[in-house]
Write a protein that binds this DNA or RNA. Structure first.
Length: 526
DNA sequence: AGCGTATGTCTCC
DNA sequence: TGGAGACCCTACGC
């Protein structure tokens, strides 16, 4: 029944991998140093560049004292079954990424050092690393550290009970009022696999719809906790991964009383909310066999549907005349599209998150959709192990410009690597704020902003006018050449970015149309 | 503290 | 076309 228990898991640990053609550049640094050891033991020269690093060599008889200082050497000696011969302990710098010597990549304290042999991890362009990427968000400017908390709070309770607690089951659904934490209820019988989407039916207060990788849609009454299944795409149970259907995308069309559902094979289903029955036949809306990641009904025109999928497309549909291969528009992306959302008020804009490390914005869905209005470089290209990152609109931002999205690349916060949650002005690509908390050391791929509680305060007309004046003064002093320097050859957010540079140069980018209040905990950079 | 491992997509053969 | 293997900053249990 559980697809995750299948034998479909690919890859495996490096130690299980058979040898490949890349014999001189093996997967792990340990294996490559083993090779060097072997080579030296047999008198061969090592082809690698000789760097200035020293090598310590010990005779087998002297292993014991060496092992005290170098446990790895002892382990290596044991592995070889006490084979007599010279033990070489290499102190060469070996890059974990490209396996070459002479440089290192990885964490140095809380700062991650990039491999200079690879393209930039952030914007994917060659010639520089993440640290020097023009799209890099710098932490050093205008940061006000949050006070470290020692006292236990209600959040600590949640953390202790949920994160640290032993939760071995999958598909748990927890519901609580955040001011009454002790009344939290956990349901373990609603789904048997991970929950991918949840929607509360605003027209029927207290009804929650959930979509899961177990292939079912459930409807749960939040007051009574009574749930009922609405749809099961795997009525015949587990017959292997090739036939197991999982549901990721789901949305409600409250006008028509419909629930729209999409599976990991590219098909869209309609459910009638009241009769709890399927309507019509499944319709192929993305490449056959590819996952549909999100569905979103347009808030102003509920018959207009946005789907995004693993086939590198986001598509707009008219659900009144829906047929396969008949989208109103197909929006091409560089890689898998993690999510796509209409803007929350007018529904005229589209915001997508793609695994090519770019957030894309279309300003007007009834205009020319062939090319996106903006493309914002942002670090979120991590899909394995984690829920895919999804940028979302701030639902209470009437100007439909602010989006929230978690960031993958960490920042050094008082010696700790933390992953901020970014607030981005999608009209310019500028970072408005980043939120961090030492108690939140994990990555936050999915974030929901409160529908009514503001952490943003729109600027007054006077403040805006003052900023415009300051900006003009800067342009006069520095000229307009900075944009070229900043963006270089990268085609990023600036197609119609009249303000000049985008995401990375944040000393200038910090102030735009919003300020951020210091309500609550965590760190805000404005 | 350190190791093992689940997990998804992409590229190459 | 499909399968095997690679993959840069995880999170968590043992």
């Amino acid at each position: 029944m559980d697809p995750t228990c299948s034998d479909s898991a690919a890859g495996g640990t490096p130690s299980r991998r058979p040898p490949t053609k890349r014999s001189s550049r093996q997967d792990s640094s340990s294996s490559s140093s083993d090779e060097e050891d072997e080579a030296e033991a047999s008198g061969e020269e090592i082809a690698d560049d000789e760097e200035e690093e020293e090598e310590v060599e010990e005779e087998a008889a002297a292993v014991e004292p060496a092992a005290k200082e170098h446990p790895a050497a002892a382990a290596a000696g044991e592995k070889r079954g006490g084979r007599k011969g010279r033990i070489t302990i290499s102190l060469k710098k070996v890059c974990k990424v490209c396996k070459r010597t002479g440089h290192e990549a990885g964490f140095k304290g809380a700062v991650y050092i990039d491999c200079p042999m690879k393209p930039c991890f952030l914007c994917k362009m060659p010639g520089h690393t993440t640290l020097t990427c023009p799209h890099r968000v710098a932490m050093e400017h205008g940061v006000i550290p949050a006070p470290r908390r020692n006292a236990s709070t209600s959040l600590d309770y949640v953390f202790q009970s949920q994160v640290k607690g032993k939760i071995s089951m999958k598909g748990l659904l927890g519901i609580w009022d955040y001011v009454k934490l002790h009344e939290k209820i956990t349901y373990d019988s609603v789904h048997s696999c991970i929950l991918n989407s949840m929607k509360i039916d605003n027209a029927n207060d207290g009804i929650l719809y959930t979509a899961s990788s177990d292939g079912t849609i459930s409807c749960t009454d939040l007051d009574t906790g009574i749930g009922s299944p609405l749809l099961n795409l795997n009525p015949n149970g587990w017959n292997g991964p090739s036939s197991w259907r999982m549901i990721y995308g789901m949305d409600l069309n409250t006008d028509k009383g419909l629930i729209l559902v999409a599976d990991n094979f590219g098909f869209l289903y309609f459910l009638d909310r009241r009769s709890k029955t399927r309507i019509g036949h499944p319709i192929l809306i993305h490449k056959k066999g590819s996952k549909v990641t999100t569905l979103h009904c347009n808030p102003a025109r509920p018959e207009v549907l946005l789907s995004s999928g693993n086939d590198h497309y986001a598509r707009i549909w008219d659900t009144r005349k829906l047929e396969a291969n008949s989208p109103l528009a197909s929006l091409a992306h560089g890689r898998v599209v993690n999510s796509g959302y209409f803007s929350p008020q007018s529904g005229n804009k589209i915001l997508t998150t793609c695994q090519d490390n770019r957030i894309r914005v279309w300003d007007y869905i009834f205009g020319d959709l062939q090319s996106r209005s903006r493309e914002i470089v942002h670090s979120h290209d991590f899909n394995r192990h984690l829920t895919p990152f999804k940028a979302e609109w701030d639902p209470k931002d009437y100007t439909e410009t602010v989006a929230v999205v978690g960031r993958y690349i960490s920042e050094n916060y008082n010696g700790v690597a933390l992953h901020p949650i970014d607030f981005i002005d999608t009209s310019s690509g500028k970072l408005l704020a980043e939120v961090m908390d030492p108690d939140l050391a994990t990555i936050s791929p999915v974030n929901k902003l409160h529908p009514s509680i503001f952490i943003w305060k729109p600027k007054t007309e006077d403040e805006l006018a003052e900023e415009r004046t300051k900006q003009k003064a800067k342009e006069y002093v520095y000229g307009s050449g900075s944009r070229k320097k900043t963006n270089g050859k990268h085609d990023n957010s600036s197609d119609d970015d009249s303000d000049g540079d985008s995401g990375g140069k944040n000393k200038k980018a910090k102030k735009t149309r919003f300020t951020c209040t210091t309500k609550g905990k965590g760190k805000f950079k404005v």
